[in-house]
Each structure stands twice: as C-alpha cells, then as structure tokens.
C-alpha cells in the first residue's frame, strides 16, 4: 500500500504518492528531483542528506517520508533568494574555500543555516558541536568553521 500526502517544500505545497516505507530523501530526490540533498550513508551517520523539517535539521535518509505530511521542508535548493543570491553562509563557503568535492556541502549548509537561526553568534565550539552529524572527508573542517565565523560576524 502506498502513502499519499502533502507537505510544503521550499514554499510550495506538493502532494506525492509513495511507498509507505519511503524515506524523505528519496521522495525529495526521486519524486521532486531535488538532488541537492545527497545520499552518503543511508543510516544517519554522514549528514549529507540534511534538510530542515519545520526549521529543524534532520537526516532525510532515515526520516519516514509520510511523517512529513503537513510539515514544512526546506532543502538547499530553497535557500537562495528570489534573485538567485546566496545566503551569507553559502557566500562564506564560496569565498572561504570551504568547498572541495562539495558532496557534503548542501548538508553542512543546511545544518549551519539552522544553527545561526538558533544562535546568531555561535562560538567555534558551538559550530563544531552542531556539525557532529556532518562528515566532511576533504577539508579537515577548518575552512568550514571559519566560513561560519565570517558569515556570522558580517551578519551582526
């Protein structure tokens, strides 16, 4: 039996009909063709699939899709402004050499977007703790942390 439900994704209401045990990640990628969220591990270890559900970061690879019924989902594709401009976090990633292979980047950006929503002036420790569930294999994290510090300094 499949599950039909509606949710708001990046400001648009969408209705999908998917397998009852489908994950939110697969609905986003395969049904809605929003491939910015990545499948890195499929078990909530790497954070490459991080999206925001009702503003909170979740691993969409282990989030039951029908549980998102009636909720608001934000993905990396929905972050940019209507004129295509980058958010301060995205801009700081680009300017601060915080992107290498980039496969983890959308997940990092989503987690950090939630972080600065909650805490506009995070310390380095706050940032490192918030990123516990996001693996980056390329950068060694320093440029990412500096990018957040830069973005939050410029914001305030």
């Amino acid at each position: 039996m499949s599950a039909e439900f509606s949710m708001t994704v990046n400001g648009r209401t969408v209705t999908v009909d998917v397998a009852a045990d489908e994950t939110l990640l697969h609905v986003l990628r395969d049904e809605l063709l929003l491939t910015g969220a990545k499948e890195g591990c499929d078990e909530g270890e790497c954070g490459a699939c991080t999206v925001l559900v009702d503003g909170k970061p979740v691993d969409s690879c282990i989030y039951p899709a029908p549980a998102a019924a009636g909720r608001t989902v934000s993905t990396i594709e929905g972050l940019v402004g209507s004129d295509g401009s980058l958010t301060p976090i995205q801009r700081a990633f680009v300017d601060g050499f915080a992107v290498q292979c980039g496969f983890c980047t959308p997940g990092f950006v989503m987690t950090l977007t939630a972080l600065i929503e909650e805490n506009s002036k995070p310390t380095e420790r706050d940032i490192r703790e918030a990123l516990s569930g996001n693996l980056c294999r390329c950068t060694g994290y320093s440029t990412i942390i500096d990018a957040v510090l830069t973005a939050t300094e410029e914001r305030s």
Binding site: G44, G47, T50, V53, K56, P57, V58, D59, I62, Y63, T111, A114, E129, A130, S132, G133, N134
Partner: peptide, 9 residues
C-alpha cells in the same frame, strides 16, 4: 545521542 539531526527527531 547521535547528532543534532538525530536528536531533533
């Protein structure tokens, strides 16, 4: 417990 992402849900 796990990460921020898993703690949220």
């Amino acid at each position: 417990v796990g990460s921020w992402q898993t703690q949220e849900v």
